[in-house]
Amino acid sequence: MKHIKTVWYWWWGWNPTHMETMLERMEAAGWKLFQVDFFGIRFRFTRGKEETVRYSVDYQPEIEEDYLSIFEEDGWQMKWSGGGGWYLWRKPYTTQKPEIFTENSSLIERNNRLLKLLTPLFYMLLFIFVILLIAGYEKFQWLIWVYVILIGLYVYMLTQLRKYNQKLKSEIRE
């Protein structure tokens, strides 16, 4: 029987719930997370005992001095930090599932931090795309198509982040 398992899992920053659930199921099946790649899409597990664990993702491009200690004092273990401000936290529990984000407003703040990162990058992509178009379509045809795909991906990400924030805001109002 294998003692190490590798799982590739693509997840979206505005809604990491699916990835968190996958990690929690792996722990429940006795697979302990021991390594995450820099981009947070390759997860490596080792065989261990089954445990009920909560995983939670946070995005903090600039952490304050007490950020790590606040989580650690509350029993959270940092399993990964990478990809420009992403943090993956783990906390075992027995009865009530712990949450890092206890209010929708804190999730909205996390998503707004993502928007502050992605929006300028989107405008930079658009600027480079326009320069490529002006320079001549024939010379850079393949690169223009790459930028079309990237711009489409960014539009999708920004739209999803805003839609998710609207959903969270409407839940607050109810």
Rank of each mutant, 00 (worst) to 15 (best):
W14G: 00
W14M: 04
P16G: 06
P16F: 00
P16A: 14
P16C: 08
P16W: 03
T17L: 11
T17N: 11
T17F: 12
H18E: 14
H18S: 14
M19H: 06
M19A: 15
M19Y: 01
E20C: 09
E20W: 00
E20G: 02
T21E: 09
T21H: 07
T21N: 01
T21G: 03
T21V: 03
M22S: 08
L23K: 03
L23T: 07
E24F: 13
E24T: 12
R25Y: 03
R25G: 00
E27N: 03
E27C: 03
E27V: 03
A28D: 14
A28L: 15
A29Y: 00
A29Q: 13
A29T: 00
A29K: 09
G30T: 07
G30K: 12
G30R: 06
G30H: 09
K32W: 11
L33E: 05
L33W: 05
L33R: 04
F34R: 11
F34K: 09
V36S: 05
D37P: 01
D37T: 08
D37G: 04
D37S: 11
D37R: 02
F38C: 02
F38I: 06
F38S: 08
F39T: 11
G40V: 05
G40S: 11
G40N: 10
I41S: 12
I41M: 06
I41W: 14
I41E: 14
R42A: 06
R42D: 09
F43G: 04
F45I: 10
F45V: 06
T46R: 10
T46K: 12
R47W: 06
R47K: 14
G48K: 03
G48D: 12
G48H: 05
K49G: 11
K49L: 05
K49H: 10
K49P: 03
K49A: 10
K49D: 13
K49Y: 05
E50T: 11
E50A: 15
E51N: 08
T52K: 15
T52S: 15
T52M: 14
V53T: 14
R54F: 07
R54I: 06
R54L: 08
R54T: 12
Y55K: 08
Y55S: 08
Y55E: 09
Y55D: 09
Y55I: 06
S56Y: 00
S56H: 03
V57H: 07
V57N: 02
D58W: 01
D58M: 00
Y59W: 01
Q60L: 06
P61W: 11
P61H: 13
E62F: 03
E62R: 05
I63E: 13
I63G: 05
E64G: 04
E65K: 13
E65V: 04
E65P: 01
D66W: 08
D66M: 12
D66C: 07
Y67M: 12
L68W: 04
L68K: 13
L68M: 14
L68G: 06
I70N: 13
I70V: 11
I70F: 07
I70A: 08
F71M: 14
F71C: 05
E72C: 09
E72H: 07
E73N: 15
D74E: 13
D74P: 00
G75R: 02
G75C: 01
G75V: 07
G75I: 02
W76D: 10
W76I: 03
Q77F: 05
M78L: 13
M78P: 01
K79Y: 02
K79M: 14
K79G: 01
K79C: 11
W80C: 01
W80S: 02
S81I: 00
G82R: 07
